[in-house]
């Protein structure tokens, strides 16, 4: 067990180093930050002075070493544009993104699971076919189009929900939450629907397929033979056996939702990390970009590691060293 964890940790460190290297190499291609930091009339002399001040004129290995040295301590420097420590900026934006992602995930589960169960139980019903078709649309329409459509319908036409921002937020220590105010909750609806829509479809189809599979198995047949009610068979036995893979997939999707939140955050001006990253790209704000990339990589690595460990716990066949066999 311990050997397994150590091995996994070493692999994680390697992945993080690779991401840092790629991120760093990428900065060569995002443009010269000096141009957006100085006024247009700045002289060539001024530009060179600033480049030296930022350390952009140092050899690339030196720059990379400094970057890694800082990153290890969680220190990514000062944002070129906002002039604030990058770690502060990230900590400030993290709650917005996480609340959005969890709301979207919750929405996806609450919609996806019942829809999947329903379509599995009523395979040829009219509603099932309709849901199947709608879910196909949900998977094929690009998310930013759904976002704009939601804004058009619910903000411009119906005037029910705000089209941008996070509403009023309440500060709980360093965590800013929009879950405690009416305007915060209202603001959360459209973005989480947009972000969660694809996942609804995914979960619905997954639940449907798994459920159909399980319903064909012997123990369901025996359960029916025992005279159990439909309700007990469907929900007590079939659904429970369906959920294991669904939970795994949903967990893994969390990581990609954090990454995909960039688009949702841009459409709804949701002040999260994705928006911070997009802004940083257009201003060639290297410290912010590098911190974001490293953080997202870290989230993926951690989630994957947790999943790996869970498998290890659940399935003894995976114990690589055979220490349990």
């Amino acid at each position: 067990m311990l050997a397994f964890i150590v091995r996994r940790l070493l692999q994680a460190v390697l992945v993080m180093l690779a991401v840092a290297l790629i991120a760093f190499a990428m900065f060569r291609f995002v443009g010269d930050p000096v141009n957006s930091m100085l006024p247009e009339i700045a002289t060539t002399e001024d530009r060179q002075a600033l480049r030296a001040q930022l350390g952009l004129d140092e050899p690339i290995p030196t720059q990379f070493a400094k970057f890694i040295g800082g990153a290890v301590q969680g220190e990514f420097g000062i944002s070129y544009r906002n002039k604030r420590p990058v770690s502060d900026l990230i900590v400030e934006r993290l709650p917005a993104t996480l609340e959005l992602v969890f709301a979207a995930a919750l929405f996806a589960l609450l919609m996806g699971v019942p829809m999947g169960v329903y379509t599995a139980l009523n395979r040829h019903g009219f509603v099932s076919n309709l849901l199947q078709i709608i879910s196909l649309i949900g998977i094929s329409v690009p998310t930013f189009v759904t976002g704009i459509l939601l804004i058009l319908i619910f903000s411009v036409w119906l005037n029910w929900l705000p089209s941008f921002g996070r509403g009023e937020v309440v500060q709980l220590g360093w965590w800013s939450t929009g879950l405690l105010t009416i305007s915060g909750l209202k603001s959360l609806v459209l973005p989480s629907v947009m972000l969660g829509l694809f996942q609804v479809t995914l979960i619905m189809r997954l639940v449907r397929a798994e459920m159909l599979e399980v319903l064909r198995t012997d123990f369901i047949r025996f359960a029916r033979a025992r005279g159990l009610t439909d309700r007990a068979v469907h929900f007590g036995h079939a659904l429970r056996n369906t959920l294991m893979p669904v939970i795994t997939i949903a967990g893994l999707q969390l990581g990609s939702m954090i990454a995909f939140a960039i688009i949702t955050e841009t459409v709804f001006q949701w002040p999260g990390m994705g928006l911070l990253f997009i802004q940083a790209v257009s201003f060639a704000d290297i410290p912010v970009m590098s911190a974001y990339l490293v953080l997202v990589a870290l989230i993926f690595v951690v989630i994957n590691m947790i999943v790996d460990l869970l498998y290890f716990v659940v399935d003894p066949r995976l114990s690589v060293g055979g220490d349990r066999a």
Partner: peptide, 18 residues
């Protein structure tokens, strides 16, 4: 003052009265 990067959203917010 709010920044809204997306053109479509910015216009929608004006049209919706926000």
């Amino acid at each position: 003052f709010s920044p809204i990067a997306s053109d479509a959203t910015r216009i929608a917010a004006l049209l919706s009265g926000e």
